[in-house]
Nucleic acid binder design. Structure first.
Lengths: 243, 243
DNA sequence: CTGTTTGGCTTGTTGGAACAAGTTGCTTGA
DNA sequence: TCAAGCAACTTGTTCCAACAAGCCAAACAG
């Protein structure tokens, strides 16, 4: 299985990449240097872009991509409910960033996957809290929370659009304190819509975090799905044998 | 900012995708259907492949991609050291899979990133245990562990290539029991080498998990880096307020 | 009936050409 | 001096053409 020309060119360019931020030679120069057609050179460059190694945009020379991530501490996140506001915002501030928050409260019919997690019939009217979080005016993550009816019914607090921080605080305040969580983490490529909403560069995967919170009776009281641009965030957990 | 032809074709094809496993029309048919050139149609199909939505290989018709993931329970993983063997293998078996394990024990000079985590000078001779894990004869993850010298020196157990399960058991057996862990999770696109070793389909990100284990004195005793094909695995954590 | 061959399908690779459109810096005119 | 505008660069889009190579099933030979 011999190496194709575009693979060869991609490998040679990859090995010649400089420091993050450095400019690449122009397509014309690469065509001359490697004796391949522009199509072939562009296929090689597209491969490097899909690997997340370089950036490109019309009219500007390609550059070696630079990434730096913000840490999101997942184990601690909801442990302290009653302190000031949003623990995520505090984490970002502690790292020197400027957090921002867009919150939208909706009433929706539960989709099949949400209904299954919350153990309710599909189509039940539930509350969704859709959050878009920013860091330094850069969109960072889409975080959607869903609550079963028995939690939100008759609780005006839940329909108050004022930002009370993470849902954990809300749940504790309304008598449905979470005592157990189940988190999952996966990654996939973003859809066109996700890519646009999060202003993601090509070759950037989406890191998907889900959290199901349970109350003392073992009932699911919240389902949260968070989609993040993987080049801008690092999720972390601190574990102990005896905590 | 008008939609380009290849974006339009990509959108139309995306919206017409059927069930997972279903065949797509051939390139020639798409050329005729959308009135675009073969290059344009191929650009649209390449975009869908990069999104992880379809599969393709030479000579075979393209199909809607199908994915199913194995769960990896991270919080429980090392809690029970002294039971039978590898907790990862047990997790996979419990889900109906057939696990397999390739272990390679090396002595290496600590790279800068590893040295920093283990709090030793870069270049120090340390032990690396490189593991390749399989599920149903499909490569699943590359898991590399690094140990500082004070843990491995004079412990023949560590140089015995017999598979003693997760390193947690080894550490406990040699008097360096871990009591605290710090985990991080990120995602990125795989390098060509990683893509080949894990036999990853195009458009599949890499899920990268790191774990640093600390002993009772607070010293790092292990650094583990695990790279997984994100379409074949889901990492999970179970958390409690009072455990 | 069985095993091989082959032809026609599929996608993959590489070349070429022309024009569109964004960026940048230099030149020129007010 | 300063701003507008132009020229020369960059990458983006779209076509066409030819051949390579993998896959599969039907036809064929033994």
């Amino acid at each position: 299985m011999p190496e194709t020309l575009q693979e060869r060119v991609a490998r040679l360019i990859r090995d010649s990449l400089g420091e993050p931020g450095a400019a690449l030679p122009s397509e014309a120069e690469l065509v001359e240097r490697y004796g391949a057609s522009r199509n072939t050179v562009r296929a090689a460059l597209a491969a490097l872009e899909a690997e997340g190694l370089i950036t490109s945009s019309q009219g500007r020379t390609r550059r070696v991509r630079q990434i730096s991530r913000w840490e999101w501490k997942m184990a601690e996140w909801e442990k302290a409910h009653n302190n000031d506001g949003d623990a995520w915002a505090n984490t970002i501030k502690a790292q020197g960033g400027t957090p921002k928050n867009d919150l939208q409260i909706l009433s929706i019919q539960a989709p099949a996957d949400v209904a299954e997690v919350l153990q309710i019939p599909a189509g039940t009217a539930i509350q969704a809290r859709n959050r878009l979080r920013w860091v330094n005016d850069e969109p960072h993550q889409l975080s959607d929370s869903y609550f079963p009816p028995f939690v939100t019914d008759g609780n005006d607090l839940f329909w108050n659009p004022s930002d009370l921080g993470v849902p954990g605080g809300l749940l504790a305040a309304t008598g449905h304190k979470q005592v157990r969580w189940h988190d999952t983490l996966t990654a996939r490529m973003p859809s066109a819509e996700e890519s646009q909403r999060l202003m993601m560069a090509p070759g950037t995967p989406l890191l998907v975090h889900t959290r199901v919170g349970y109350d003392a009776e073992g009932r699911p009281v919240r389902y949260m799905v968070t989609r993040m641009a993987a080049d801008r965030v690092e999720v972390s957990y601190d574990l102990n044998t005896d905590d």
